[in-house]
Design a protein around this nucleic acid. Sequence first.
DNA 1: AATGGCCTGGTG
DNA 2: CACCAGGCCATT
Length: 278
Amino acid sequence: MPELPEVETIRRDLERSLSGKIIQKCTVRDRSVLTGIGPSGKPIYSVRQEDFIRQVSNQKIQKFLRRGKYLVVEFSSGAGLVFHLRMTGQLLEEPPQYPERIAFHFTDGNMLYFADRRRFGTVRYSAHWQTLPEILALGPEPLSSEFTSAYLLQKFNRKNAPVHAALLNQSLVAGIGNIYAAEALFLAGIRPQRQAAKVKTLEAEKLCQTVRCVLEESIRHRGYSMRNYVDTLGRKGRSQLFSKVYGKEGLPCPQCQTTLLRQVIGGRSAVYCKICQK
DNA sequence: AATGGCCTGGTG
DNA sequence: CACCAGGCCATT
């Protein structure tokens, strides 16, 4: 559930409260969230927790970064911790409601907890996080100048995939999930099941704009909190109060009052208006 | 490109 | 009890 705006909200909060601090030690309560890297470049899942603890202990936090849905804690040494919250992962400055997977203890007494009821989320230490395969595989940041309608059109060219699936493809553009794909397509007037290759130039321009718009607006509202997402102090965002179609199947379209439909596309449910989206 | 698995809480 | 949520990866 945490997509770009939610991870960005967390990043900004952590940057303000924890940058410059030094990790004294960490407590690993669930080793399965530690991912490693094998000789083939594929992730392995057998990082020794004593290695992880040694690697992060005494590291000073330089800054917090975000790449797509990944949150990166960059140390002064140049090494980094790369978190992916997947669906239910949380980073909290206060003790979580249920047992954390990992707790980081800072020298000044501050804490950072990584909690995840569903154990999909991961954290990985890397001496050079920029070259991790999952980071290299990411497409451009949708809020950067790299993300243009020309880029979208070029990537959509000859793509048979439905445009909703294309927007979820992290190697095409990084950080968009089911919520913002649905919202951006609605505002752009494009049906989610339309073949990406059949998106016209003008529509790509509109879509490029609506993608930026929904992400920026959600960051302003501190993220979408219908289900699991909370910020680092356990507070909900307000983005769900402003969504037009996501989670609104069966309700009237905000523009034309026609009942919103849902279709499963690439295993994900896409909500849309059959009148407003062509 | 579609499907299934990972995992678990919430809902009908 | 069955099913849904869904990011991401592996498989078909």
